[in-house]
Amino acid sequence: MNFFAEALQWLVDPANYVGLNAIPLRLAQHLGFTVVTLVIASAIAIPLGFLIGHTGRGRSVAVASAGAFRAIPTLGLLTLVALSIGIGLNAPYIALTVLAVPPILAGAYTGFEAIDRRTIDAARAVGMSEVQIVRQVEVPLGLPLLIGGLRSAALQVVATATLAAYVADFGLGRYLFAGLKTRDYAEMLGGSILVILMALALEGLFALTQRFVVPRGVLAGRPTDIRTRSSRPRPVMESAIEEGQKNVHSK
């Protein structure tokens, strides 16, 4: 507990609020970096995800690549890019954009996929053009899952941006690495607390946004509580033929 008291002291020490190593400056760097990376990654992933979600083409490629990306160690990618293009901020920007794209892409197309096909058919039947369907039906209904994708991307970027201090003099991660080198536990711990608080704050913010973007009357994106279903969930009005084709439909 002693260490935590020291860390708190470090957090309120006025000496840490001036100069190039000031806490507010490091916080702003970290947050700014996260926002910029998310914007770049979104600009790439959202249109692509909407295209995949709307047309249904390229889905298996997207699923497979998202899985493969998960296996790639962030630290490895970061050091590799840093070594190729030099120390500085460009390497983390490239590496983290690459890492942020798959979750956002997945959020964008699963959001579209989660929509009841009948809703889209109905939109088409009343004469909406494809562009109108995307804009007025699919995007609003898929928004909660898209925000969910942004949320996991944001978490990942905040976490990995800490590692980015390994290859650039930047962000909250600097405190961790400086503290590790000099065995300054107060600095190391204080920095860790700041990063964790930032991650939790972002998580909370996204969780709230995710709730607010659900169109009124629609519960897509919120986890349905299976326990609230009645004990006889199977509808009886479907004909035997339809029952037999159920699997074909859900594919």
Partner: peptide, 9 residues
């Protein structure tokens, strides 16, 4: 949601 490096520390 806790980033890995701070948790390791």
């Amino acid at each position: 949601a806790i980033p890995s490096l701070p948790l390791f520390i």
